[in-house]
Design a protein around this nucleic acid. Structure first.
Length: 595
RNA sequence: GCGCCCUUAGCUCAGUUGGAUAGAGCAACAGCCUUCUAAGCUGUGGGUCGGUGGUUCGAAUCCACCAGGGCGCGCCA
């Protein structure tokens, strides 16, 4: 049983259409939709059924529409059906059909809007997946929030969702991290080396000079004394310490990452380690699998046209025929020195996910990885026999703004570098909501002042305030009415006939569109639509509230009219429930009051 | 040079996957506060949906080309 009134009406329309066009093809039926009208003058909903089916039926749209009108005019809950424009059928519902939604919402609670659209489809959403080489910064934050909200959204739409983090704990970056931690260790035990002298000993030079590694160095010193250095406290042979230091540092960094994620309200189901994958030989196994299908060869790539790197020279590499699966060029899996590329490991990782039986793999990536998507899609196609779908959600850059000016991403004091700093100032809920007020694939400005402002142009506040107002009304009601009469269960039974004001109708219609908003947003992989829905819902509610300022008879609590009051409390409660349902998708905690 | 993304009101952005007269906030203008929370509210003005063609009953949405912006382009991740 669905709570989506638009889906219910679509069923009616399809039944009617099949009566008129008996051999209606499935693909045509799939295109039939029932949507809210933009303009109330056109009724409550409209369907394109006549226009869509006209060719298959070999009948004029107007004629089919007339048939639909005759049929639908008799359907339960429909007050009026009419042909309009080029063949739309406009429907006006009985007010009681709209109101019937309120008890349905109250009975569903926060599960209102859940759907079965994704039932039986296993989805893996991979997000954040940062190098564990330092604390999380703002660049990671958007991906974390978008990925988490997308996973919640798809779960609400019925998909079987796994949230996953891929730890990039293999490769050169992590080796550099180990060296950087080792430097802090040497400092902790009192080395006489200068930073530059040390850097000269490091392959590629010292990276990661941030102070966040100092505690790691101290901890290593406490645990191992001077055992990891030469007797004169200099650089010992890496073989004697690098594994130990790297593992210790990665563990510490990941602990910090998990703390940051927890503060952001992100809880992932699985953390997969690239290093464990490499150690298991999965990359080579995967390359062998591709080779068995004839998709691997030794070759030399052409330099990119128009932009030949200065140091370019042709070198033979192990290549994957990704062009057979829609990529632009074949991609290297082994470097010219024979070691595996990051891509090779990542293919192996995706092969692992395919092996776990997912139907859809979604990677939430930074926009600078956009060029990576085609090759990964090709690899997933090749490895799954085209059964597993690969999708990427790209997150564009976020510019942090304060006082109308961009906040530099430098490590100087006063600048925001880490996620933790941002959370301390703005708070989890404002960070999450604000990050979701733009399409992920559009650049966004994060205005620190606005995120904290208590005004209408701060969506976080505006939505939270709407919820707080709902709760405020209910608190006031609890002082006038028996508590048992205003529970969700009790309110689901009250007579709602008195809900006839226009602003009330508008609000009910908005509540009614929640399930279809969830479905559409989940299918489009666009969690930001939920934020916009909530803003619109809040707007409708505030509008209704404000009507009560001009006209006292429109206030929710009417002392002398208990039945009307209960009906309005049912509407208010349904609004609060729906707001909570939406905030839950975004991972934002609803507030009870604002003082 | 090639690929991907973007271009909608003065500004920041939506636009229900091709539907009817393109929407919201801010800014501007005109009104409004004895109140269930004015932490605001009501109303008005504001558009060649970057441009030109095409596809069809119908295009901001799909296709082609052009202009402008962003990202990427072998052995980084």
């Amino acid at each position: 049983m669905t709570n989506d009134i638009y889906a219910l009406m679509r069923d009616h329309v399809l039944t009617a259409l099949r009566a008129i066009v008996p051999d209606l093809p499935d693909d045509i039926a799939a295109r039939v939709e029932v949507t809210p009208t933009r303009d109330q003058a056109h009724g409550d909903m409209a369907t394109n059924a006549a226009m869509v089916s006209s060719k298959a039926a070999r009948q004029a749209p107007a004629k089919i529409a007339a048939g639909l009108v005759a049929y639908l005019g008799e359907a339960p809950g429909i007050a009026e059906a009419a042909v309009a424009g080029p063949g739309f059928v406009n429907l006006r519902l009985d007010p009681s059909a709209w109101r019937a939604l309120i008890p349905a919402i109250l009975r569903s609670g926060e599960s209102y809007g859940d759907s079965r659209t994704g039932t039986g489809v296993k989805v893996n959403v991979e997000y954040v997946s940062a190098n564990p080489t330092g604390p999380m910064h703002i660049g990671h934050c958007r991906g974390a929030v978008v990925g988490d909200a997308l996973a919640n959204l798809m779960a609400k739409a019925g998909f079987e969702v796994t949230k996953e983090y891929y730890i990039n704990d293999a490769g050169a970056q992590v080796a550099a991290l180990a060296w950087a931690a080792y430097w802090r260790y040497l400092q902790a035990i009192g080395t006489t080396l200068t930073e530059e002298e040390f850097s000269n000993e490091v392959p590629g030079g010292l990276q990661y000079r941030g102070e966040y590694l100092i505690p790691i160095g101290l901890a290593l010193a406490a645990a191992h004394g001077t055992a990891l250095a030469t007797p004169d406290l200099g650089v010992a042979a890496p073989a004697g310490w690098i594994d130990l230091v790297r593992n210790f540092t990665i563990d510490a960094m990941m602990t910090e990452v998990r703390t940051d994620l927890a503060q952001l309200g992100v809880q992932q189901d699985i953390f997969s380690s690239e290093r464990a994958l490499v150690a298991s030989g999965a990359a080579d196994t995967t390359i062998d699998r591709l080779a068995a299908d004839g998709l691997i060869y030794e070759g030399v790539l052409e330099p990119p046209k128009g932009k030949t790197p200065d140091d370019w020279e042709p070198r033979p590499q192990t290549l994957f025929r990704s062009t057979q699966f829609g990529d632009d060029v074949d991609r290297p899996l082994r470097k010219s020195d024979g070691s595996n590329t990051y891509f090779a490991n990542d293919i192996a990782y995706h092969a692992d996910k395919i092996g776990r039986g997912y139907d859809i793999l979604i990677d939430v990536l930074g926009a600078d990885h956009g060029g990576y998507v085609a090759r990964m899609r090709a690899a997933v196609k090749a490895l799954s026999g085209n059964k597993t779908k690969f999708e990427a959600v790209l997150c564009q850059i976020v510019h942090i703004m304060r006082d109308g000016a961009p906040v530099r991403m430098s490590k100087r004091a006063g600048s925001y570098v880490t996620l933790s700093d941002l959370l301390d100032e703005v708070g989890k809920d404002a960070v999450r909501f604000t990050m979701l007020t733009r399409n992920a694939d559009a650049q966004m400005e994060f205005d620190l002042d606005k995120a904290l402002a208590q005004t209408r142009d701060n969506p976080v506040f505006y939505v939270q305030y709407a919820h707080a107002r709902c709760r405020s009304v209910l608190r006031a009601a609890a002082e006038q009415l028996p508590p048992a009469s205003i529970t969700e269960t009790a309110l689901a039974e009250v007579n709602l006939d008195s809900l006839d004001a226009e602003a009330e109708q508008t609000l009910i219609r908005r509540l009614a569109s929640w399930p279809r908003t969830v479905d559409a947003a989940a299918l489009a992989r666009e969690p930001h639509r939920i934020a916009f829905f909530l803003y619109d819902l809040a707007s409708d509610f505030h509008m209704l509230w404000n009507r009560g300022k001009d006209d006292a008879t429109l206030r929710f609590l009417q002392q002398d009219q208990p039945e009307r009051t209960l009906a309005r409390l049912a509407l208010v409660t349904a609004t609060a429930v729906t707001i909570r349902s939406g905030l839950a998708v975004l991972g934002v905690t609803p507030v009870e009051e604002m003082r």
